[in-house]
Amino acid sequence: MPIKQWIASETGAKAEQVAKGYLIDQGLGFITENFRCKAGEIDLIFKDMQQFVFVEVKYRETDSHGSAAHMFTRAKRRKLERAIMCYLQALDLNLHHTSLRIDLIAIDKQNINWIQNV
């Protein structure tokens, strides 16, 4: 793995751990992290009462190429939605009968922005 890619994945993993701790502190129940399937990956999965919360974590050290929140594109959302379908199928849950939402944790430098229902 090229060094630049390795550094990026290490930074991403650290940002995910910060986001995980933050959401636990907010009262969400942690389920799992880095769920992978053929369709894509889900960074973090929580439960908020009876609702599944699928969390995408974005981190930017500088805003020279845009904020972390701007990195969550339509294409990324579609890929995340396909991964969510895989997760629900793995648990034998029906999308239409399962309460869920997609949240974004955008970390810019030291600021955490939790955007619910993106």
Score class of each variant (00 low, 15 high):
Ile105Pro: 00
Glu33Gln: 15
Ile84Tyr: 02
Ala75Pro: 00
Ala68Thr: 09
Pro2Ala: 08
Leu88His: 00
Phe35Ser: 06
His65Arg: 12
Met85Asn: 09
Ser99Gln: 11
Lys4Asp: 13
Ala8Arg: 15
Val118Arg: 07
Pro2Leu: 13
Gly27Met: 10
Pro2Ser: 09
Ile31Glu: 05
Gln26His: 10
Ala90Lys: 12
Trp114Val: 07
Lys14Arg: 13
Asp25Glu: 14
Ala75Ile: 03
Val53Gly: 01
Leu88Thr: 01
Asp108Gln: 10
Thr98His: 08
Ile24Tyr: 00
Ala13Leu: 14
Leu95Cys: 04
Ser9Met: 10
Gly40Ser: 10
Glu81Thr: 00
Arg60Val: 15
Phe52Val: 06
Ile31Ala: 01
Ala69Phe: 04
Ile7Ala: 11
Asn34Gly: 10
Leu104Glu: 02
Ile7Lys: 13
Asn94Ala: 13
Cys86Tyr: 10
Ile115Phe: 02
Lys4Gln: 13
Gln50Val: 08
Gln116Trp: 02
Lys20Trp: 05
Asp108Ser: 13
Ala13Cys: 03
Glu61Arg: 14
Ala8Met: 05
Trp114Asn: 11
Glu56Leu: 07
Arg101Lys: 14
Met85Tyr: 05
Cys37Asp: 13
Leu91His: 14
Asp48Phe: 03
Tyr59Gly: 07
Ile115His: 03
Asn34Gln: 14
Ser64Tyr: 12
Ser64Phe: 11
Leu23Tyr: 10
Lys38Asp: 07
Arg77Asn: 09
Ala75Phe: 01
Asn117Tyr: 06
Ala13Val: 03
Leu100Met: 13
Ser64Trp: 09
His96Pro: 01
Ala39Lys: 01
Leu88Asn: 02
Lys109Thr: 12
Glu16Cys: 08
Thr32Asp: 08
Asp48Val: 04
Ser64Met: 11
His96Asp: 11
Ala13Phe: 12
Glu16Lys: 14
Leu28Asn: 04
Asn94Asp: 15
Ala68Asp: 10
Ser9Asp: 10
Trp114Pro: 04
Leu44Ser: 06
Cys86Gln: 05
Arg82Gly: 06
Leu23Arg: 04
Tyr22Phe: 15
Glu81Leu: 06
Gln17Ser: 14
Arg60Cys: 11
Glu16His: 14
Asp103Thr: 04
Val57Pro: 03
Phe46His: 04
Ala83Trp: 01
Ser67Leu: 14
Gln110His: 11
Phe52Asn: 06
Tyr59Glu: 06
Leu23Asp: 00
Gln51Glu: 15
Glu61Ser: 13
Gln116Lys: 15
Glu56Thr: 08
His97Asn: 12
Val18Gly: 02
Lys47Gly: 04
Tyr59Met: 07
Leu88Arg: 03
Met85His: 06
Gln17Arg: 15
Ala90Gly: 06
Ala69Asn: 03
Thr11Ser: 05
Ala39His: 00
Ala68Tyr: 00
Tyr87Glu: 02
Met85Phe: 05
Ala19Cys: 07
Gly66His: 10
His96Tyr: 10
Leu104Arg: 00
His96Met: 09
His70Asn: 14
His96Ile: 05
Ser67Pro: 03
Asn94Leu: 09
Ile105Ala: 05
Gln5Trp: 06
Ile24Phe: 00
Arg36Gln: 09
Glu81Ala: 03
Val53Cys: 03
Leu93Glu: 08
Asp108Ala: 09
Gly27Tyr: 11
Lys14Asn: 09
